[in-house]
Computed example of a mutant assay.
Amino acid sequence: METNLTLYRIFNSVAGTGNISRSSKELFISQPAVSKAIQALEDNLHMTLFIRSSRGVRLTEEGSLLYEYTKSAFDTLKQGELTLFRMQELGMGHLRIGVSNTLCKYILLPYLKDFVKQYPHIKITMECQSTYKTLELLNQNKIDIGLIGKPDNLKGMDFYEIQQIEDIFVSTQTYLDNLSLQLSKNTRNKVSPKAQNATEILRYSNVMLLDEKNITRLYVEDYFTRNNIKTNQLLEVSSMDLLIDFAKIGLGISCVIKEFIQEELKTGELLELPLDPPLEKRSVGFAHSKEAFLPQAVKHFINFYKERCISQVHILK
């Protein structure tokens, strides 16, 4: 657009009021400045837009046509401003979150439940996939926030830890008893969940882990390698819920997250098999790109989970 937008704004005001004096007051500029701007616009367009008279001004045919467009344009801009103000006032906006199915169910949902109560007008879109895929989407600016297990490399990311999780191996007592009977045919040693080390149990058991694309799987396999732990039969399972359910029916020994099966451990439905050394705890938190523009809805969510974490720390104290 070659013509200065200010000239169109002045033209739109004069066309709407039909009077240079009223437009001058409306725009908070002098009458000569208004007249000069109208003349400049007419010179730029090489046509007459107003017919002047002692009673004011009226639009020419060309001026009337131009006014239809400027009025629509400035009305749209005004509506845009009002929408932005309303979004800010009501906390509206769009929040895109990436998270694995497991972290979504056990960690994210409680956050979202309280967040939605506080910001009911924010639209939330979920992308459920692995941590590595979440990091990829963050780098591509296709999501705003990711709930992830902290990876080794967080280059270009801000990470805020909200809790730690512990990976453990569990099974039922029935499975251990059956395994002990099976092994007793070849050895006099019986398998017990109170064994000093679960290495032997894992060597002869059906060991169930998440699929290879999962960060938890890689973390556990690295532990196996560092501690020279060999497994007999390895079964890949697609979700944490299935790992827990398969362990409950006695299909084998599952690697699960301890914080997600507190009730099963408390009732004895599942037994934790001690490892020496134990798997180190991992950090889980929200991450976002350092370089990405953060819309107001994203800022609301960041402030929300930070304040919630601070409140939880105070409660624990």
Score class of each variant (00 low, 15 high):
residue 173 Q to R: 12
residue 174 T to P: 02
residue 174 T to Q: 15
residue 174 T to N: 15
residue 176 L to E: 02
residue 176 L to S: 04
residue 177 D to I: 04
residue 177 D to Q: 14
residue 177 D to F: 02
residue 178 N to D: 15
residue 178 N to W: 00
residue 178 N to P: 01
residue 178 N to Q: 14
residue 179 L to K: 01
residue 179 L to G: 06
residue 179 L to W: 06
residue 179 L to M: 13
residue 179 L to V: 05
residue 180 S to Q: 09
residue 180 S to W: 01
residue 181 L to T: 09
residue 181 L to S: 13
residue 181 L to P: 00
residue 182 Q to W: 06
residue 182 Q to T: 10
residue 182 Q to F: 06
residue 182 Q to M: 12
residue 182 Q to N: 14
residue 183 L to G: 09
residue 183 L to K: 13
residue 184 S to V: 04
residue 184 S to N: 13
residue 184 S to H: 14
residue 185 K to D: 03
residue 186 N to F: 13
residue 186 N to W: 15
residue 188 R to N: 10
residue 188 R to E: 09
residue 189 N to R: 15
residue 189 N to S: 12
residue 189 N to D: 11
residue 190 K to G: 13
residue 190 K to A: 08
residue 190 K to T: 13
residue 191 V to A: 10
residue 191 V to G: 00
residue 191 V to S: 00
residue 192 S to K: 04
residue 192 S to H: 06
residue 193 P to V: 05
residue 194 K to Q: 13
residue 194 K to D: 15
residue 195 A to W: 02
residue 195 A to E: 09
residue 197 N to Y: 07
residue 197 N to L: 05
residue 197 N to W: 03
residue 197 N to K: 11
residue 198 A to D: 00
residue 198 A to K: 02
residue 199 T to L: 04
residue 199 T to R: 15
residue 199 T to C: 04
residue 199 T to A: 10
residue 200 E to F: 08
residue 201 I to C: 06
residue 201 I to Y: 06
residue 201 I to T: 14
residue 202 L to M: 11
residue 202 L to H: 00
residue 203 R to F: 11
residue 204 Y to T: 09
residue 205 S to Q: 05
residue 205 S to R: 04
residue 205 S to K: 03
residue 206 N to G: 04
residue 206 N to L: 02
residue 206 N to W: 00
residue 207 V to Q: 01
residue 208 M to A: 09
residue 208 M to V: 01
residue 208 M to L: 12
residue 209 L to W: 07
residue 209 L to A: 05
residue 209 L to E: 07
residue 210 L to H: 02
residue 210 L to R: 08
residue 210 L to G: 12
residue 211 D to S: 09
residue 211 D to G: 05
residue 212 E to W: 02
residue 212 E to P: 00
residue 212 E to I: 06
residue 213 K to Y: 08
residue 213 K to Q: 12
